[in-house]
């Protein structure tokens, strides 16, 4: 029914379906694969899919940032982490908890509950901000960051500095 909704946006809906399928498949592989490096690579697929979703709703800047920061920096960080901790690069039979079923017990009801709540609340609401007039440009985003959310922005800057220092303090050798 997602695909059949509106003629004008058929293409977008098809793409959304493809992207969503890829993202979910990638996410499932991230949490099931036995190989840590493969997990990181599957994560790239998920992050790219999320970035593509951002592009679909017209959030170009956020989408680009997603790709740059997540895929460019964070995944690389993960790969470094894997190497530095000398985790087995190949398959590893020991990556799951003995009590892995606990995760299922929690996650499945959570998914059911979230889906029900979302469906119940926003049944047929549309996103219709894709007309050129209502599009949110990068300039709008930056205006908002540097006026309305300036204090939050400063706080984030502070947080990043603190995290940087903290990471160095934690990771350096005595």
């Amino acid at each position: 029914m997602i695909l059949a909704a509106e003629e004008a946006l058929v293409a977008q809906n098809i793409f959304f379906g493809l992207i969503a399928a890829g993202t979910i498949f990638g996410a499932l592989r991230v949490v099931t694969t036995k190989n840590v490096v493969h997990a990181a690579l599957w994560l790239v697929l998920v992050l790219a899919g999320v970035g593509a979703n951002f592009l679909l709703v017209g959030a170009e800047f956020t989408g680009v940032t997603q790709v740059l920061v997540y895929i460019g920096a964070i995944v690389v960080l993960f790969l470094f982490g894997t190497m530095l901790t000398r985790s087995p690069i190949g398959r590893d039979e020991d990556v799951d908890n003995p009590a892995w079923y606990l995760g299922l017990i929690v996650a499945v009801p959570l998914l059911a509950l979230l889906s029900y709540a979302v469906w119940d609340q926003w049944g047929d609401d549309h996103i219709d901000s894709l007309t050129p007039a209502a599009a949110q440009t990068t300039a709008d985003v930056s205006d908002s960051i540097f006026s309305t959310y300036l204090v939050a922005f400063e706080a984030i800057g502070f947080l990043l500095t603190a995290a940087l220092i903290g990471a160095i303090v934690l990771a350096r050798k005595e």
């Binding site: 979910i24 996410a27 499932l28 991230v30 949490v31 990556v95 799951d96 908890n97 892995w100 079923y101 606990l102 995760g103 299922l104 929690v106 996650a107 499945v108 959570l110 998914l111 979230l114």
Partner: peptide
């Protein structure tokens, strides 16, 4: 939900 599963099961 997949993320929650991963956090708990990995």
């Amino acid at each position: 939900s997949i993320g929650v599963y991963g956090v708990l099961a990995r």
